[in-house]
């Protein structure tokens, strides 16, 4: 993938990711997150991870964010009214986040392989779906089953949680 496209999608991801945090309107936040995820999916595909990239769109943009929007609209969460901002707490939060960012910067700059480019792949059309599937059902069979049980438990939990208590 050309650097030009990489930077476009990287900027898209980061800017809309920041918009999630900055926006006061929850719907705008959710939509920014969708765009950010789409950019991220493009980055995945630039790493020849087509399956992961498309699953990202399918699960996050297609299902999770629709759920978010559904809840936002159902609860009718409007733009938050301007509350008195606790400047000290906000500054603290920003400072911690910035510290984390600087830390990550430093780690990456010290990390030797980070300056290397990606090695070339043998063919342009590798079947990553088949490879991931084979791995999933052989080496990671047990975790896969456990995740299945987890999703089942989550489903039951969600049904129980969102069930209205009968008015007595």
């Amino acid at each position: 993938m050309s650097p030009f496209l990489f930077w476009i999608f990287a900027l898209l991801t980061v800017i809309f990711g920041a918009a999630v945090v900055v926006n006061r309107n929850p719907v705008a936040s959710a939509l920014s997150l969708v765009v950010s995820f789409l950019g991220l999916s493009a980055l995945f595909m630039s790493l020849d991870a087509y399956f992961v990239g498309i699953i990202q769109v399918l699960v996050y943009a297609g299902a999770v964010m629709v759920l978010f929007l559904f809840i936002i609209m159902l609860l009718n969460l409007r733009t938050e009214e301007e509350r008195r901002i606790n400047w000290l707490a906000s500054a603290g939060g920003v400072a911690v986040a910035l510290a984390l960012l600087i830390q990550i910067f430093l780690v990456i700059s010290r990390f030797e392989p980070a300056r290397k480019t990606f090695p070339p792949l043998p063919g342009s059309s590798i079947d990553d779906v088949r490879n991931i599937g084979a791995l999933l059902f052989s080496s990671y069979n047990l975790p896969f089953q456990i995740v299945g049980v987890l999703v089942l438990v989550a489903t039951i939990g969600v049904v129980l949680l969102s069930k209205r208590e009968p008015r007595s």
């Binding site: 297609g62 299902a63 929007l69």
Partner: peptide, 17 residues
């Protein structure tokens, strides 16, 4: 693409927005 049908579902699911 090798994820053809997943691509179809992924993009079609964006239609709801």
């Amino acid at each position: 693409v090798n994820v053809g049908i997943l691509f179809v579902f992924a993009i079609a699911s964006l239609g709801v927005y």
